[in-house]
């Protein structure tokens, strides 16, 4: 009755324990699919209101493309350091892992600092959150992206801490690969925002 050889022609060992890494990545990817719609809504709102400036500053007057490209480049490079961290993890090299995790967190923080600087700059030039629908939708769209980066930095620091205290396990809890997927996703969202919100509006 419990003859495993009859099992659907598979003669090999049948495991009743799914590969938790696959399970967790599946959940992460559907979550990222869902996040696409989230950022889609924010960007669509921005596109709808991109010209509703109500006499306030317009995108053309405001945006400082060289500055924003520099911070875009920093975020892009944080994806490199993230993937190197993941690679180090795969090679079971804790020292390299910690270096690259720290580098990623630092690059992410630099991007956030750049965004804070940019927002203050714009505010000085007369673009407050309440100036126009354009202003509201710009700040909220890029701000939510910034919030995602901030959450990512927190998770990177948590990973770093877990690695230092020897509590980083495979197969359960947070791990480098999942945080990496989230981090790269935040990066690709910025790729879209950089083009659609910045480059195409100047």
């Amino acid at each position: 009755m419990t003859d495993l050889v009859t099992a659907e022609g598979h003669g090999e060992h049948i495991s009743t324990h799914p590969d938790m890494n696959v399970v967790r990545k599946t959940a992460m990817w559907v979550f990222l699919g869902s996040e696409c719609i989230f950022f889609g809504s924010l960007i669509a709102t921005f596109l709808l209101y991109r010209t509703e400036t109500r006499g306030g500053p317009t995108a053309k007057e405001l945006f400082d493309i060289p500055f924003t490209s520099a911070s875009s480049f920093i975020l892009l490079m944080s994806s490199l350091t993230m993937v190197l961290a993941h690679n180090a993890r795969e090679r079971r090299d804790p020292r390299q892992l910690r270096i690259w995790l720290l580098a990623t967190a630092l690059l992410g923080s630099t991007f956030l600092a750049g965004q804070a600087f940019e927002f203050t700059e714009f505010a000085h030039e007369g673009l407050k959150l309440t100036t126009s629908p354009f202003a509201s939708s710009f700040y909220v769209a890029t701000g939510f992206h910034g919030a995602h980066v901030a959450v990512g930095v927190l998770m990177l620091l948590a990973l770093l801490f877990m690695s230092m205290s020897g509590r980083l396990r495979t197969g359960e809890g947070m791990n480098v690969e999942l945080v990496g997927l989230y981090w790269h996703f935040v990066d690709v969202v910025w790729i879209v925002i950089f083009t659609v919100v910045y480059l195409l509006q100047v």
Binding site: S34, E35, I37, F38, G40, S41, L42, T45, Y49, R54, L129, T130, S132, P133, A135, S136, S137, Y139, V140, F144
Partner: peptide
């Protein structure tokens, strides 16, 4: 759900922070 999430944030921000969505 993400679309209503964004909408709810916009409503909440309009009511509390003076955004103009």
């Amino acid at each position: 759900l993400p679309t209503i999430t964004v909408g709810l944030f916009q409503v909440f921000f309009d009511r509390n922070f003076g955004t103009l969505f």
